[in-house]
Design a protein around this nucleic acid. Sequence first.
DNA 1: GGGATTGTGTGATATTTGTCACGTTGGGAA
DNA 2: TTCCCAACGTGACAAATATCACACAATCCC
Lengths: 208, 208
Amino acid sequence: MEKYRHLFRDLELGLQQELQEKGQILEAKAGKILIQSGQNIRHTMIVLEGLVKLYRENDEGGEFFMYHLHPGDGCALSLICDRTFRASSVTAKAVTDTVLLVVPVDETENWMRQYRTWYHFVVGTYRKRYEELLETIDHIAFQNMDERLEFYLRRHRNALNTNVLEITNTQIAQELNSSREVISRLMKKLAEDGKVRLLKNGVEVLRL
Amino acid sequence: MEKYRHLFRDLELGLQQELQEKGQILEAKAGKILIQSGQNIRHTMIVLEGLVKLYRENDEGGEFFMYHLHPGDGCALSLICDRTFRASSVTAKAVTDTVLLVVPVDETENWMRQYRTWYHFVVGTYRKRYEELLETIDHIAFQNMDERLEFYLRRHRNALNTNVLEITNTQIAQELNSSREVISRLMKKLAEDGKVRLLKNGVEVLRL
DNA sequence: GGGATTGTGTGATATTTGTCACGTTGGGAA
DNA sequence: TTCCCAACGTGACAAATATCACACAATCCC
């Protein structure tokens, strides 16, 4: 816990203490599914280390990438999900090996009253996620696949903090709810424009 | 204020009192723009009467319908917006003549600590809006225009609680970010299928 | 090596949606 | 009335994307 102190340096000391006492540290391997909505959620989750991605699924197996959570980010979902979520659902999956801090929601409800900084943390979390969702909406509503692909690559480069993305076209197609062939063609164009370089098992982002 | 009491019957009495004291009642004519984001928001807004719609705008004049607010609904936006919102923005517009209760955010931050029911109200508001946004995302991501149109009509029929929607195809096209001609054609198909009846100045929803 | 699996590249074609051009209709307002 | 304007309907065409069919390469397993 000590090594994650910097993530919480803006919180009141009493709250830092409580996080340490009431929270439980959880490790997850890359690829592990952390939340599959539909199930009732009784815990709030804060990412300490690693990267988590959230995506939407529908009945026909379609997926749709929503956003990433970085160290220090809380999961707005944990506060949002409950039984009433229906057929289609939101899933959280560890992209890299991940360490999480998990707290029962009963505690957090008290914190909301006791600690001003927790209130700000929660509101800030909602705000950020809401904004990212809106940004996502903008892209599907207003933009074509080529621009969406570029946005996708930028986002992932920033999230993973590396220009070399080890990701298959098939996977990208799924997350953008497109088809492999389309991504393949667009990727070729990006390569011709010198914006990316195609690797054996991934893409290198050159300038986007 | 008395006539709106039923909207707040689940709130603590002290809180009802405060809403009455600190809140200000505001009336708006149909069509009035209530919030244009980008501007800093210092007030929380609760709908008392009428119907408000929220939509997203982008730089090129594109619009995109997000969801409605009914009496009793709070505006998640008021808690979410701030300076950091950029170029594209969210707009709230009165659909019918509307009565609003407006409270400075400084008050509500205290309420969050003092009143458990306020906490639940706020979290519930976030949850509902988040869910509606997700539903919206599902539709643009996974569905074709015809299904999206049907969904649009259903939503509006339910929101306005009438089968006769006085709305132009042009307007629908804008809110779905499509074009008038496309809506026109799809509408004709819906009419042929007996799902709607086309009126002089609107649509009657028959079975959807 | 041989076979299965997975990801890829590409042409041909279908579907969906957007765009353009133009004619029609039904109000107001002068 | 006449003119104007906004909304509408429609055919023709263009653009974006999805789908199909197939061939190819790399990898893994036996």
